[in-house]
């Protein structure tokens, strides 16, 4: 199982690197699907099968599909890719990347400070998760429900293509 973990970790990291460097949005999305699948494998190797399934269904399924819809609706094609290429100059990305790298190094240093210990991987079944979720976390679940509800209403409202309402005086000037 640890081999599965290492392989899927490497795949996830590589796929993520590809995501952030692609010019074509659709390519990046496909790499993102790969990355999510790999992370789903990591979950499986850590004994969390329920989360792994959700990762595939929600992230790789629903969210990515949303992105694809948007990319299609905006009709992002080769022109976008060319523009992305123009934007992705070394002078643009080198500074932020160094800063991010420093952050990474510091985080790893912090993580390595306490002595390392191995963990025994035991499967936490969906049943346990469900008992916990609808037991002690019930209020958080309800709040999550609210959040999704407002998300839907907000998205429906914002996404509406409204005509600009101009005052009649301004309309004449147009």
């Amino acid at each position: 199982m640890s081999l599965l973990f290492y392989i899927s970790s490497i795949v996830a990291i590589l796929a993520t690197i590809m995501v952030i460097t692609r010019h074509q949005p659709i390519h990046a999305l496909l790499y993102l699907v790969v990355s999510f699948m790999a992370i789903s494998m990591i979950f499986l190797s850590l004994g969390a099968p329920f989360s792994a399934v959700l990762e595939v269904i929600v992230y790789a399924g629903a969210i990515i599909v949303l992105f694809i819809f948007v990319v299609m609706m905006l009709n992002l094609d080769k022109e976008t890719a060319l523009q992305e290429k123009k934007w992705l100059q070394p002078k643009v990305w080198i500074g932020p990347s160094i800063l991010a790298l420093v952050l990474l190094i510091e985080m790893i240093l912090l993580l390595l400070e306490p002595p390392s210990e191995k963990m025994l991987v035991t499967v936490v079944t969906p049943r346990q998760v469900a008992l916990s979720l609808y037991g002690e976390y019930i209020i958080a679940v309800e709040l999550g429900g609210f959040l999704l509800m407002t998300g839907i209403v907000g998205a429906a409202h914002i996404g509406k293509h409204t005509k600009r309402n101009l005052h009649r005086f301004l309309q004449n000037n147009h």
Binding site: M1, A12, T16, V19, W87, L111, K118, M119, V121, T122
Partner: peptide, 27 residues
């Protein structure tokens, strides 16, 4: 059941996090 270092998982998570951050910053 084999065993994995907890550190290793967290390091992988932080690498992914930093990669996401680089994406936010550069794109």
């Amino acid at each position: 059941m084999s065993s994995i270092h907890a550190h290793t998982v967290l390091i992988v998570a932080s690498i992914l996090f930093v990669l996401g951050l680089v994406g936010v910053l550069t794109r």
